[in-house]
Measured scan of single mutants.
Amino acid sequence: HNLTITQGKLFFHYNPKLCLSEIHKMEEVSGTKGRQERNDIALKTNGDQASCENELLKFSYIRTSFDKILLRWEPYWPPDFRDLLGFMLFYKEAPYQNVTEFDGQDACGSNSWTVVDIDPPLRSNDPKSQNHPGWLMRGLKPWTQYAIFVKTLVTFSDERRTYGAKSDIIYVQTDATNPSVPLDPISVSNSSSQIILKWKPPSDPNGNITHYLVFWERQAEDSELFELDYCLKGLKLPSRTWSPPFESEDSQKHNQSEYEDSAGECCSCPKTDSQILKELEESSFRKTFEDYLHNVVFVPRKTSSGTGAEDPRPSRKRRSLGDVGNVTVAVPTVAAFPNTSSTSVPTSPEEHRPFEKVVNKESLVISGLRHFTGYRIELQACNQDTPEERCSVAAYVSARTMPEAKADDIVGPVTHEIFENNVVHLMWQEPKEPNGLIVLYEVSYRRYGDEELHLCVSRKHFALERGCRLRGLSPGNYSVRIRATSLAGNGSWTEPTYFYVTDYLDVPSNIA
């Protein structure tokens, strides 16, 4: 807008934040220059609390790290170098490059900038070799853009010569660093050979998330399962459950009422301010606690030095998902009996873990797994792929695949051998790939016309006998059925096997 004052003059007093240069501009645009008398524009009460600059400061050096910015700028000295009290560095987070010096300023003089007072450097006698002032900004957020400017702080001049310097606002972004852990990993099994893994992005990506790394490792069953005799009275049979499938998407929606109208769909109840505040506090606490764990609990591995020492970490090797089922080394339970199943799973520490690289999504279907087997899954978020990966501390989750139908069934015939004193040795093959492992066998036998009897055969007993022995049988026709019990439950009964026990007292003698 054009402003013209045809008559009258300007009068400025007691404006401590208004620089004289701005008042002189007002004289020019209003056409009143030359009308004012000496005392109409006070030299001592206008701009006496402001830094009124008329020179431009330029930054000469900028260096960044993930949490620091090192700045240096060209030296500046007023005509009387004693008038320079120091520099004021202003900075704040700036997602967009549209910041002005006066953003967030209120009537009390406060604003949204963080201000650092910096002492002037030592003055050199040689004007050509003056030290460049600077400042190291610490405690910054990774991968965050900051708006920065600097200006001088000078003393009051009796001659009211307006001098000083100020830089333009520059924008500097800190470097990326390792992201925080992925949030809320959930693993479920939808079949006997697959596990579905879902997660949420890290709360602090500290860069642009480029991919996720998912490692999985087959877990050995508890050692007590191999040692305890679950045929003993009072000892509860062990059981394991597989990871249940995901709930429906509708039930997972946030901010939804727990109660549904019987007449149909209901609208979600909005969260109160107290609920939102509580969630923010919980989120802040979780982030602080995660940072504490990362800094205190997890110790970084030592990389190899120039002395030739090897990095103890196993090298990563990509495998196809079809090879995942046989990740671990199978060892027989008892070496003397080769027909026992290889369900003991000690994992070799030198073995390469299978892994998958996930790009542009937060889910993965891990296939080719062994049925009813526990897996430990390790999830890392990465925001750099080359020249070397920059990934987060791992988040861990466990899951067990679903049982395989008929995996616990005894394959092959049940054979028998009759000894003296009416002892019958029953023999059968253990299931080759049971659900988890076989903890015991149930032997059901009966003599024709009598009630059915049951015998429990422990895992250890089966390994020693290759089956079991029935003792003290009365003469007669017998039928026997056997079924295995694994961590997933009972298998199917075998087809009945028949044998006849004679009275050993009636056996004919070869003595003449």
Rank of each mutant, 00 (worst) to 15 (best):
L235W: 12
G449V: 00
V443S: 00
G374S: 07
F285E: 15
G368V: 04
D222M: 07
Y478M: 00
V327H: 08
L487I: 06
V358W: 09
I482M: 02
R353N: 13
N208K: 14
V324W: 07
R471W: 09
N383G: 03
H352R: 06
A309F: 06
S262P: 12
L364M: 09
S492C: 06
F419Y: 09
V214F: 09
R286A: 14
V393T: 13
S257V: 07
T340W: 14
P475N: 08
E452F: 14
L464V: 10
V296P: 10
A335G: 07
P349R: 14
A484Q: 02
A399S: 10
L277Y: 03
F298T: 10
D291C: 08
K278L: 05
L321H: 07
P245R: 13
F246S: 10
F285P: 10
A463M: 11
T241K: 09
V345I: 09
F337C: 07
R353K: 06
R471C: 11
N295L: 04
A309G: 12
S284F: 06
T343M: 07
Y441R: 00
T343I: 08
G234P: 06
E356M: 13
S398G: 02
C266N: 12
K406M: 10
F226E: 11
V296T: 09
N326S: 14
Y445L: 14
E247W: 07
E404D: 10
G234F: 14
L473G: 01
A463L: 12
G322M: 15
G207I: 03
M427I: 11
E279V: 05
K357S: 14
V424L: 12
E290D: 11
N435Y: 00
G308S: 10
D450V: 09
P332N: 04
V334E: 05
T340E: 14
N326H: 13
D503I: 00
H371Y: 12
E389D: 10
T415F: 07
S367M: 04
Y292P: 07
L237A: 10
F499W: 02
S509V: 12
K278D: 15
S458T: 13
L369K: 01
H416S: 12
N255M: 13
L235V: 09
T347E: 12
T340A: 07
W428V: 00
S444R: 05
I418D: 01
Y445H: 09
L453M: 09
T288K: 15
H371E: 06
S223R: 08
R370K: 15
C456M: 02
V480M: 10
L228S: 11
V480F: 07
P270T: 05
S363L: 08
T328V: 15
M402F: 14
E389V: 08
N295Y: 14
K406G: 13
G467M: 04
G449W: 03
Y441P: 00
A407M: 03
A263I: 12
E281V: 09
F215R: 13
S268C: 15
W428P: 00
E249M: 04
T307Q: 07
I377F: 06
A381W: 01
R316H: 10
Y448I: 14
A395M: 09
S398Y: 14
E249L: 09
N435D: 01
S304A: 04
T401Y: 00
S320F: 11
D222E: 06
W242S: 14
C266I: 14
V359A: 09
A335W: 05
D385Q: 11
T502Y: 02
L369E: 01
Q384F: 10
L237M: 09
Q384R: 06
R301S: 05
S223K: 07
D222T: 06
C391M: 03
R313V: 12
S284G: 11
R481D: 00
E430R: 05
A463Y: 06
E260G: 03
C456G: 01
V296K: 14
N421A: 09
S344I: 04
V214N: 01
I366R: 02
P413K: 12
V296S: 12
T497S: 07
S304C: 05
F499Q: 00
L426D: 00
G436D: 13
D385A: 13
Y498S: 10
L437Y: 14
G472I: 08
T272L: 10
F226D: 04
C468T: 02
S257T: 06
E227K: 08
T272H: 13
R376V: 06
G472A: 13
E290V: 05
Q252F: 14
N326F: 09
T210V: 12
G264S: 06
E442N: 06
L213S: 15
N422K: 13
P496Y: 13
P205W: 04
E452H: 04
V424P: 01
T343P: 08
L228K: 07
S262N: 08
V439N: 05
I276P: 06
D261M: 14
R447M: 03
R218Y: 10
F337A: 03
G489T: 06
L437A: 12
